[in-house]
Design a protein around this nucleic acid. Sequence first.
DNA 1: CGGCTGATTGAGCTATGTCAAGGGCAGTGG
DNA 2: CCACTGCCCTTGACATAGCTCAATCAGCCG
Lengths: 229, 229
Amino acid sequence: MRMPHPECTTCKSRGSSLFNFCSCAETEKINLSKTCNIYKKDQVVFHENVFPIGLFCINSGSIKLSKIFSTGKEQILRIARAGDFIGYRSLITNDPYSVTATALEDSTICLIPKGEFHELMQTNKNFYEALLATICKELESTETKVSEIAYKPVRGRIAEALLLLANIYKKEEYINLTREDLASFVGTVKETAIRVVSEFKDEKLISIDKRRIKIINSKGLLQISNLYD
Amino acid sequence: MRMPHPECTTCKSRGSSLFNFCSCAETEKINLSKTCNIYKKDQVVFHENVFPIGLFCINSGSIKLSKIFSTGKEQILRIARAGDFIGYRSLITNDPYSVTATALEDSTICLIPKGEFHELMQTNKNFYEALLATICKELESTETKVSEIAYKPVRGRIAEALLLLANIYKKEEYINLTREDLASFVGTVKETAIRVVSEFKDEKLISIDKRRIKIINSKGLLQISNLYD
DNA sequence: CGGCTGATTGAGCTATGTCAAGGGCAGTGG
DNA sequence: CCACTGCCCTTGACATAGCTCAATCAGCCG
């Protein structure tokens, strides 16, 4: 990929990222040490079981974090967007990645060297604390995901996922995910996801424009999502 | 409950807990500020949506952490035993508990006041780091749980759960969980869990003594568990 | 105009949930 | 020591959500 040149100091995503806790000097230092790449749609950013070399910070685009099974099936655990860090957990524990990160669309991602990240963790208490809080939140949402996959029927899970995705994709107005990815996100198969999405369209809860989904009646979706809580 | 008197300084569980990273002075300080209670089987240690008042440290016994649905169904996320901390996440994020903690058997649990915990986090770097690492591990295992519930059939999930539980219950030699709890742990219902457990018994993978399960052929179970990875 | 990728739809099939009816064992009280 | 009671565990019959497989369609690109 051709090397793009976003600058940390002027990065639009910085305000919503953990780097918001960094001083100007720190930001400048990170800016100098980082490298930056464009990942094309479907390109893998990092693979499960590989050791990390640094911290990925998403400048633009969107990335899915998923576990892939030998059968070819995939479980998407999280979708990360501009301003999000990915791959920091392995950096903290010195373990290989436990998930695979793949670009959902063309994305620009910066790579901050491992050492720089560790130094920041050691020297900037606010950064450290914000990092800890982020992980706690992630853990909570993952725990919620466990119980929902276990007990909510697909219809409820998709309703909820759409609301969550609408929030992630709020700038675009449309949820731009293939039915297959949507299915992997809620733990079902493509065909079932398609059927439920069609139902929602028939029930005027969502509209569809060129495969992309837009929520019309979020209250209705929320109600469906909460049916089994 | 009558007040028991375990001492942090001589606590057998200390070596395997995060307090292992504390100095003698710190341990002594914690010991003085803590209170301690016996929780009877099925007694709730803390409820979802309630704000924490301190850190629970399990001295003996076992505790299930679960989410409970309005339908009465329950998803067990984790089983904690002697030496484990519970409820620290809410303490870090200042949020109410996101899960309910219930004693699986009569258990002794100490409560370290919130302030003491925060002070430790601020002053003891090793403790802080170990805490972060613990959360990261928990997150990873929860993510694994998501994908398994989504794609592994019940048979595989129970095989895996038994191996994991055998490890948790290694001192006792027997896995002492009701079928209902086992079911909630893997995200299924009692009857299905019972049928699978019976199959495993017939296949000589496990033996059963007074409802308690003992693993005979862990390789076989592992194989079943890995069938769909 | 093909050819490709993703969306749809239909027709079974099956794993797993639900409901209902015992069965056994441990603890309790007489 | 025996009967009683209350958990659990177990089993069977049945219902169904959701998976699989297969065929077709629709938009898009070279």
